[in-house]
């Protein structure tokens, strides 16, 4: 609601925090690393769309469940900020780990999904990663991806959007097992940059795949 413009174009990453709990917003603000500047806050769908349009931050930390609007929560904020999706990136943040919430907000355009229980350092890390154009996958999100796309590698005949390649599957499996990107890179003898490329590719598939199973799967599987 309040948009406190943080002045000059600082070298740090400018973020907007969208969450309906003021306590959580202030706690998160205190937890974030100093190079991340909170340029605005919002607690409702309308407020978020307005603040994001006014502030044009690098990253929006977006709660999935928000009051206001038509009841669509974070998804609605993403839809309302669609023209900005090129320059502003969204990191979804939620206490819910229901598959439906996670998958729908990713498919609406968020670049990653983390649960609210992770530490300030981890969130700061995720913000930097998303600001750099990469995707942020939590172990749980990786688990959802594996469950939705299946654990068998792609056939050449398959539509490439509907299946994960063998390498992408390996990366997803390691993330689901709790590996950080660095650990994944070490385990597979590839660079971190390559890991990020694979993860971004999986995100793209998750967002663009039209296979009907994905939606049905998410709707059916209401819990983790």
């Amino acid at each position: 609601m309040s948009s406190t413009e943080a002045g000059s174009p600082a070298p740090g990453i400018r973020v907007v925090i969208v969450d309906d709990h003021a306590i959580f917003r202030s706690g998160l603000k205190a937890d974030l690393d100093p190079d991340i500047i909170v340029a605005g806050e919002a607690g409702t769908v309308e407020g978020a769309v307005a603040v994001i349009a006014a502030v044009r931050p690098d990253v929006v930390l977006l709660d999935v469940h928000l009051p206001g609007g038509l009841g669509g929560g974070g998804r609605e904020v993403l839809a309302g900020s669609a023209p900005l999706l090129g320059s502003t990136r969204f990191l979804a943040l939620s206490v819910s780990d229901a598959a439906e919430d996670v998958v729908s907000v990713i498919r609406a355009g968020a670049r990653g999904y983390v649960t609210k229980t992770i530490s300030g350092a981890q969130i700061s890390d995720a913000v930097r990663r998303v600001a750099g154009g990469d995707a942020v996958f939590s172990p749980r999100l990786a688990g959802f991806v594996l469950d939705a796309f299946g654990t068998a590698p792609a056939d050449i005949a398959d539509d490439e959007l509907d299946r994960l390649s063998a390498r992408e599957l390996e990366v997803m499996r390691l993330i689901a097992r709790g590996y950080s990107y660095k650990e994944v890179a070490k385990e597979l003898f590839i660079s971190i940059k390559t890991v990020e490329t694979h993860v971004s590719a999986v995100l793209r598939k998750l967002q663009l795949s039209s296979r009907h199973e994905l939606t049905r799967w998410a709707a059916e599987r209401r819990l983790l």
Binding site: T117, P139, R140, D147, T151, A176
Partner: peptide, 9 residues
């Protein structure tokens, strides 16, 4: 101690 569980299948 927190234990995070992810299941597939």
């Amino acid at each position: 101690h927190a234990v995070e569980v992810v299941t597939v299948g």
